[in-house]
Structures are given as C-alpha cells and as structure tokens.
Amino acid sequence: MKLQNNTILITGGTSGLGYEFASKLLTLGNTVIITGRNLAKLNEMREKLPGIHTFQSDVSDPEAIIQLYTDVTTQFPTLNMLINNAGEMRTISLNDPSTNLTDITREVEINLMGPIRMVQQFLPHLKKQSNAAILNVTSGIALMPFPISPIYGATKSGLRSYTKSLRVQLKNTGVKVFELVAPGSSTPLNDQFMNVDGFDPKMMMDPGKLIDTAIKGLENDNFEIYPGLAKMIKIMSRLAPAFLLKQAGKVGAKIMENEE
C-alpha cells in the first residue's frame, strides 16, 4: 500500500501507538486526523504535531461515531484510511464480588464494539476511494489468554476474528484490511503493570520501533503484521499453548487470587 498523500483517521491518537502512528504518517506526507476523548490532550497534540487535525470523540458511543463520520467526511472528503487504535486495558479480578455488571464490559464497548461500529459507519465512504484501507490494532494477547486482563484479551481475540471475516467479505472491493498484532510496548496502556508481580518490563517493545514495523508491513501489503515478540507468540500459541497460558498466569497472580 502506498503511504504517501493519504487522508488517515486514527482513533485513540493522543498517546501510545496512536501518537506514534500519527507522528510517522504525518512525516510521510499524509493528512492525519486523530480522535480522543480528552480535549486537553487533543490540544497538546496540535502543539506537538503541527498540521495534525483533531476531533473529540468516544468510540464507545454510537451517536458520537455518527457525528464523527459527518464531520470528518464533510471536512476531509478524500479520507481513504481508517486505523482503529483506541483501546482500554484493565487488570480485573473476576473473584471480586463488587464487580459492577455494567462496568465489567466497558472494554467490550471500546475495544470491540468501537472498531466494528467505526468500520460499519465509514465503510461506504472508503469503498468510493482509491488506495483505501482499514487497519485494526489487536494484540499478542489475541493469540493467547492473559488472565489478569480477561476482558481485554476477549475483546482482542474477538477483534482478530472480526478482522479476518471483514477481509474475506471485502476481497472484491478496493478496501484492503490489515491487522496489527501488537506485542506489549512501553506505552501508557501498559504502565499499570510496572509494579505487578510477575511482570517483566524488559519484554516491552519500543513503540516507535513497533510502528516502524507496522508501516513497513502496510507498504508491503502484509495483511497480518507481527512486530517483535508477536511473531514468537504466534508460533508458541500453536506449539505450546498450555505453556504460554502458564507463563501468562504468573503475571498478577496475587491480584487474581483475591478471595470472595
């Protein structure tokens, strides 16, 4: 895929992988639009990245997605690429009896329903463009359970399955469908694990290098992109899934074993 002179919309673009995507794609000569829930952070991004375009929007809100579509396609009718990056990851003990039945599925609304709704809303527009693409950011955890973050893992597995189906259904259109299977990286999403028992920060990949790999994958039409340790996780998930689960279960074991 050609990665110059595109108009690209990135959800969750104020930090982490979204910020790295925005910065690097802007440098390549693209028109880059980012979304986020926090207006102050969006304003900071405009100072950090001159030329960036921002919209305050929440991917967990269907009405906000409809409004975002209207605003973006009106102001940027050449929009031809959507990167579904917004996400939330929490440590959750399923043994906690105080867990709220609404709150427990918050990650489903953001990580899974958000991308599905974004694609459904923007797809008719993307089909009209040349060199169009959708990139869904999943995770190495889509290939294996991560017990300390059970809902996050379920959403990423679901998004991976959805992305594969989407690619099949769009094979006769001009819209390419990519998946970035992102390994753990040094971003705010993973900062919460720094002091968790069993967590090794040395396993985290530099986010800049991760996105460099993603961009090369997009340019080479690698529809499933596996940076860093994601390649190893892919292999191990087939050869030794029980071993992977055992190792993943050591992270935050004390949190997960809380008694009712």
Rank of each mutant, 00 (worst) to 15 (best):
N95V: 04
D96R: 00
E63Y: 10
L49I: 03
I255R: 12
Y152M: 07
P183L: 07
M81G: 05
P207V: 03
A214C: 08
T163V: 01
A253V: 11
A240T: 05
H53I: 05
V251I: 15
M256L: 13
L101T: 06
E179H: 07
Y152G: 03
F243S: 00
G114H: 13
N172S: 07
E259T: 02
G16T: 06
K171H: 09
G87P: 04
S15E: 13
T78G: 03
D96H: 01
G198E: 10
E219W: 13
I141V: 11
T163I: 00
F223G: 00
D61M: 00
G158D: 10
K41V: 01
K41M: 06
P77A: 02
F178N: 00
I255T: 06
P183I: 02
F122N: 08
P183F: 15
M118S: 06
I233K: 05
N95D: 07
Q56M: 13
P50I: 01
L42H: 09
M144C: 07
P115F: 11
V59I: 09
R117Y: 09
V108I: 11
K250Q: 12
L245E: 15
P147V: 06
G217I: 03
L17Q: 05
L25I: 08
D191E: 15
I225D: 14
M194Q: 13
N222T: 03
G184N: 06
I235Q: 13
H125T: 02
A142F: 13
Q247A: 05
L126W: 13
L189V: 07
N131W: 14
Q56P: 09
V181M: 10
N80D: 12
P50H: 01
P115S: 03
H53E: 14
I215R: 08
D96W: 09
L17H: 06
R238T: 04
A154D: 10
A154H: 14
I92E: 11
E259R: 10
K250H: 06
F199Y: 13
R238Q: 09
T31Q: 14
T27K: 15
T138Q: 11
S23A: 02
G12V: 03
G217A: 05
S130C: 00
G29C: 06
D58R: 00
N43E: 15
I104N: 08
E260K: 04
D61I: 00
E224G: 02
F199G: 02
P188N: 09
I66V: 09
D221A: 01
L28C: 02
V175Q: 05
T91S: 11
A142H: 11
K156S: 01
